[in-house]
Amino acid sequence: MADLTQEEWAEQLSQDNNAVVLDVRTQEEVEEEGIIPNAVHIDIYRGQEFINEVETLDKSKTFYVYCRSGNRSGQACAIMNQLGFENTNNLLGGFSEWTGDVASI
């Protein structure tokens, strides 16, 4: 897992054609605040359901993971690494500091 600043995350993401953006916030947070365009949303608070859904993702992809502040996404990256995902990137500062595009749900 790599902890990336907002700038590093956006730069690497823009140059990565094997990327998946993963939002691990709650459904309520996504509805209230929006989502980074084209992100996959899987709520980390769903426990085993989160693990089950994550395990359906392509482990060969590079994952750019975010939550509101960077804490839950760090936990999600650690869980994903334990499940065999080799390329996970955590967004430091999370969505609350995101300055890029936002889509409404």
Results as ranks from 00 to 15, higher is better:
49 E>M: 12
17 N>G: 03
4 L>M: 10
56 T>F: 00
28 E>M: 07
68 R>I: 05
20 V>I: 09
3 D>L: 12
24 V>K: 02
6 Q>Y: 08
104 S>A: 08
16 D>K: 06
58 D>R: 02
76 A>S: 02
83 L>I: 04
39 A>S: 15
24 V>D: 03
75 Q>V: 10
7 E>W: 11
51 I>S: 08
84 G>H: 05
81 N>K: 05
71 N>M: 07
69 S>Y: 02
72 R>W: 00
78 A>M: 10
80 M>C: 06
32 E>Y: 14
104 S>K: 15
54 V>G: 03
41 H>K: 02
89 N>P: 15
77 C>L: 04
58 D>L: 03
77 C>M: 02
39 A>I: 07
13 L>P: 12
1 M>P: 12
39 A>N: 07
55 E>Q: 14
99 T>S: 12
71 N>T: 11
3 D>Y: 08
103 A>L: 12
18 N>M: 08
77 C>Y: 00
11 E>C: 07
14 S>N: 14
54 V>E: 01
52 N>T: 13
17 N>Q: 10
29 E>K: 01
93 G>A: 10
95 F>R: 03
74 G>P: 00
45 Y>V: 00
1 M>K: 02
8 E>Y: 11
77 C>I: 04
12 Q>R: 15
102 V>K: 06
1 M>Q: 03
99 T>N: 13
29 E>S: 06
85 F>Y: 12
13 L>I: 09
99 T>R: 11
21 V>Q: 03
47 G>A: 10
90 N>R: 02
60 S>Q: 04
32 E>D: 10
